[in-house]
Every structure is written in structure tokens, then in C-alpha cells.
Amino acid sequence: MNIKISNIANLPSKFGNLKIQSFQEGIKEHLVIFKEPLGQIPLVRIHSECLTGDALGSLKCDCGEQLEFALQNISSLGGMIIYLRQEGRNIGLFNKVNAYALQDQGFDTIEANHQLGFKSDERSYEVVETILEHFKIDKIRLLTNNPKKMSCLKNIMIIERWPIIIPSNNHNVDYLKTKKEMMGHLL
């Protein structure tokens, strides 16, 4: 895997003084946001980009709230967020908006992806191990509800899974139900 790695920079934020580093994988530029000390078994969140949830505050998903939960915990306890540039379960922003339009017509998130010719989840987590190896991390406490994230790490020992429970709202209750019942998320 050919990865370019940026320098580390300070990131003062509303969550505290954090650090950032970018990992360029082809045209994708992933970001690691971290707070030292990382410790021997750091708290880690693997978060896939969600512009609508992370930046625009969309109520259709729980992504932005999960990111904020992770940032709050990383800021107070130390650890890292691996922010992967794979918008819309890696179908891209254009297709995600089209999937949203299909969801407006009654399709669930999986059906919408299938209507557009995609699998229910196109994401890949291969770069995560490269990033963790760069930081010399082989054991983590993983902030996730997604069992796929737990099973994708072959060379990293997950000592503990930290759930991220976000209350539903009337805009995302069906989305969360689909994630739980059809994708096996631990909600």
C-alpha cells in the first residue's frame, strides 16, 4: 500500500487541544485526529466521512453525533479518531444525495444503495491497520457499533468495544432500525 504521510500539526478545537496528521492513499486523504498520551491501549474511533451528518448536522443519520461523542471522549481520555474519506458508505457524495432522494420515496438505506447499483456497504478498512502500525499500536479499545469494523482488523487486537449509543429522532429511527436489523449493528 503506497501511503504518503503528512507532518503532525496542532488542532485547537472546541473539544480541546488535539493533533492531526493526514495519510494520503491515492486520491483519498484520510485524517487522524488524536490526543496524547495515546497510552498502551488507546481508545480509537474509525469514522467514515459523512458531510451531511458531520458538517451539516443532518438528522437522517447518527454520524455527526457519533463523531462528536468520539471527539469528546478522545479529548478527555486520550486516543484517536481515524477519519476515513469514504462518503456515503464509499459511494460518494453525488450518489449519496441520490440515495437520500430514494429514501425520501420510501426505500431504506440498503435498498437505496442497491437501486443505484451499489452494495449495501462499499467501505474498506485496509488503511486502518497501516495507520495504527505507523503509530506503533497493536491493541485498541474500539469505539463502534459496527461489527464489520471489529472483524476487519486482522493484526490489531481489540481489547474492548465501546458502544456509541445516540438517541434516535423521528428522522433517523428507520435508518437506525435498518442498521441494527439488516447490517448487524450493535445498537
Rank of each mutant, 00 (worst) to 15 (best):
C63R: 05
G16P: 09
S58R: 02
P37W: 12
F94A: 15
I5K: 11
L142R: 06
H134Q: 14
D54G: 08
T144M: 05
K154L: 14
N170V: 07
V97Y: 02
L38C: 15
G184M: 09
F34H: 14
K28H: 12
Q105C: 09
C63W: 02
I140A: 13
L71V: 04
G39A: 12
E49N: 03
E49I: 01
S76E: 12
Q86F: 05
L51P: 01
P163H: 04
F15G: 08
S76L: 06
R123Y: 05
G184F: 06
I81L: 13
I82C: 12
F107G: 01
L67K: 11
K154T: 13
V32W: 00
N10E: 15
Y100N: 04
G88Q: 03
I137L: 11
N90G: 08
P163G: 05
N98M: 12
E68F: 02
S75R: 07
L11F: 10
H171I: 00
N2D: 12
I82M: 10
H134I: 07
I158F: 07
E87F: 00
D62K: 04
N95G: 13
V127H: 06
S124Y: 00
P42R: 12
V128C: 15
N146W: 02
P147N: 14
S168Y: 01
I91D: 13
K96R: 09
Q105P: 06
A70M: 07
D138W: 00
K180Q: 10
L38V: 10
T109W: 06
I164N: 06
Q115P: 00
Y100Q: 12
L51M: 11
A55F: 11
Y125N: 12
L153T: 13
S75P: 01
K28P: 03
F135V: 14
Q86G: 14
N2C: 00
K148S: 14
F94M: 15
P163K: 12
I140P: 14
N7L: 14
V97Q: 04
S48D: 01
E25Y: 04
S124C: 11
L153Y: 06
Q103T: 03
C50G: 07
H114R: 07
N155C: 06
N17F: 05
M157I: 08
N73M: 03
I20T: 11
L77M: 14
S76I: 12
N73S: 12
S168F: 06
N90V: 09
L71W: 00
I27G: 05
G26R: 03
N113K: 08
F23E: 09
K119C: 02
I5R: 08
F118L: 15
P167M: 05
L186A: 04
P37I: 13
K19W: 06
S151Q: 14
